[in-house]
Amino acid sequence: MSKGNGLKSGSRLEQVLAAGHFAVTGELGPPKSADPSIIEQKCGYLKDKVDAVNITDNQTAIVRVSSIAAGVLAMRHGLEPVMQMVCRDRNRIAMQSDILGAYVLGLRNILCLTGDHQCFGNHPTSKYVFDLDSIQQVEMVRKMRDGRFLCGEEIRNSKKADLAPPKMFIGAAENPFGDPFEFRVIRLAKKAKAGVDFIQTQCIFDMPRFKEWMKQVVDRGLHEKVYILAGVTPFKSARMAKYMRDNVAGLTVPDSLVERMEKAEDGAEEGIKICLEQIEELRETVGVAGVHLMAIEWERKVPEILERAGLTPRPEVDKQALAS
């Protein structure tokens, strides 16, 4: 039915973005044990509130339920997953196999990531892989969508069989707060060249620096090639704001925000207010196609934040849509 609809994957996230809606994605960290009940609980908060939810892939190198398995569970609970896949743990063989596997299980969005170094996690003596970097990974997934493995072979079961490629909507991350700053837009341009469809950014607290980066993105016309989803994270408390300022790599938290959190009588409410102001400002920023709301261990607040931001209900899409 969807022949010629111009969609690359037919995922809900792709349809929302292609229709020009301001997209909303969330984040769900899989559990650190074989007890999956927390996935159902977190999905309950996010269902019908976000267009898709990122399923992290052993974030900070701590072993968790795999992003594919947790993604399938998220689908059963009514959410569209964005499967994260880091380059740290798989070579090109395992990646392509898992992409085929994820696709046959119904996953349609992937987020290609370098991955935190294993020294941060609970197996610091492990060996890393990094066979590919995230830019090469994007290009590989794009080639697969076009019908060929990275090695050039066609994706079909036999010479007579039809091509059966995994048609993924391809995402990647970008950190406007990493250095060298001037390279950050170049990195995005390389990902665009590799074939990325959407970008989710690192959590934004330093709005002036984000806007400076966005200006460079717009100047290069990259916002017309790639959907940029701006990352936001609400502070739960002044303690969290301080912790993120002082201890989290690749982040910039201005002192003014920490002070504001410290002065507030109700820290949680102040954190939400700051987040709502950020979302408002991002919606006005040229080139921003949506927000990626990372409510770290605070998923239950997502419905309230999105309702107060006027971002619910989410738009309807064609649930049967296929890639053309």
């Binding site: 970097d133 995230s134 991350a173 250095d179 060298p180 390279f183």
Partner: peptide, 11 residues
């Protein structure tokens, strides 16, 4: 990480 396309987000 022996990356070939420039620094990751952790620089």
């Amino acid at each position: 990480k022996s990356l070939l396309n420039g620094p990751c987000g952790g620089s």
